[in-house]
């Protein structure tokens, strides 16, 4: 009996662990190895070299793409946190029995997928889209700002990842004990102090997880800039995708992938100082 339980216990944890080691850790390792090789004429040369990283660190275009991606990712994530908090707060505090309806209404647009949602958004922002169509009909000039520009990309990222961030903050707030806020209020704290000293710090972990969930895909985005970014909107992830597609320089693309991965890990490392996973409301580990 105990032997069987022990075996069962090991199998239950080992199967998913093994699966991730094989199909998640191994591919990332392969990417790192590939980044130290070279591609010549669409063929891989199996010789260790640092030339890919040298190219990335010295060529102006790649540095520009990277800085643009970084600025975009930071801006988008901060904007999303600011937008998400009031929404999640309202659903948790005043949603009552409609909480689940509100949260499912957030999920529906999220699930229709990046490509289709971008097409829908282009129907709004594009040269022939709703906004400009309406402006032209009213006799005004079309808004150039929202057509094929970094602004268009920014709006698209907000549109894509808003449901994800709101849901994360919501999950954090719903596990937050609002009696703590009442206690602070009873002790004479005003609204501002209750928010900055009780509600915000105790939900910081969930907020940071939400920030990261928007930051990481934005940092390595390739579809959005390609479709909406226009001539000055090339981002790092889009350039990386081109190395694997048109240009066929896989090794350089792999090095770009490693750079993106390292920066994601770095951001995660910096921010995770503030994260207590028990407080994110995700795993239910708060019990133990």
């Amino acid at each position: 009996m105990t032997m069987a339980t022990k075996l069962q216990r090991r199998l239950i944890l080992d199967i998913p662990t093994g699966f991730l080691l094989l199909f998640f850790v191994m591919p990332l390792t392969a990417l790192v190895i590939l980044s130290f090789w070279q591609t010549e004429n669409y063929k891989i040369v199996y010789e260790w070299t640092l030339i890919n990283y040298g190219t990335l660190a010295t060529e102006g275009a790649y540095i520009t793409f990277f800085l643009r991606s970084l600025a975009m990712a930071i801006g988008v994530s901060i904007a999303l946190v600011i937008l998400s908090w009031p929404i999640a707060y309202f659903i948790v505090r005043y949603g009552g029995r409609y909480r689940i309806v509100f949260s499912l209404l957030l999920v529906i647009p999220f699930l229709s997928g990046e490509v289709l949602r971008l097409i829908a958004l282009q129907g709004m922002l594009g040269p022939a889209g709703l906004v400009n169509g309406a402006l032209i009909r009213m006799g005004a000039a079309p808004l150039r700002m929202i057509m094929y520009s970094n602004t268009a990309s920014f709006i698209a990222f907000i549109y894509l990842y808003l449901p994800l961030v709101v849901t994360t903050v919501y999950l954090s707030l719903i596990n937050f004990d609002f009696r703590l806020a009442h206690a602070a209020s009873a002790c004479g704290a005003n609204r501002f102090r209750i928010f900055t000293e009780v509600v915000w710090p105790l939900n910081l972990s969930g907020t940071i997880v939400g920030f990261m969930l928007a930051f990481i895909p934005t940092l390595s985005a390739s579809l959005v800039p390609r479709f909406l970014g226009g001539p000055n909107g090339t981002l790092y992830g889009m350039s990386m995708a081109q190395q694997f597609g048109e240009s066929g320089t896989w090794a350089l693309g792999a090095a770009m992938g490693v750079v993106l991965f390292l920066f994601s890990v770095l951001a995660l490392g910096i921010l995770s100082f503030g994260v207590d996973l028990r407080r994110t409301g995700f795993t239910g580990l708060g019990r133990s």
């Binding site: 990417l31 969930l213 990481i216 985005a221 390739s222 992938g257 993106l260």
Partner: peptide, 11 residues
């Protein structure tokens, strides 16, 4: 915490 495109490319 690893973007989809990185998963795709590395696999």
């Amino acid at each position: 915490f690893v973007s989809e495109i990185l998963l795709g490319i590395s696999s």
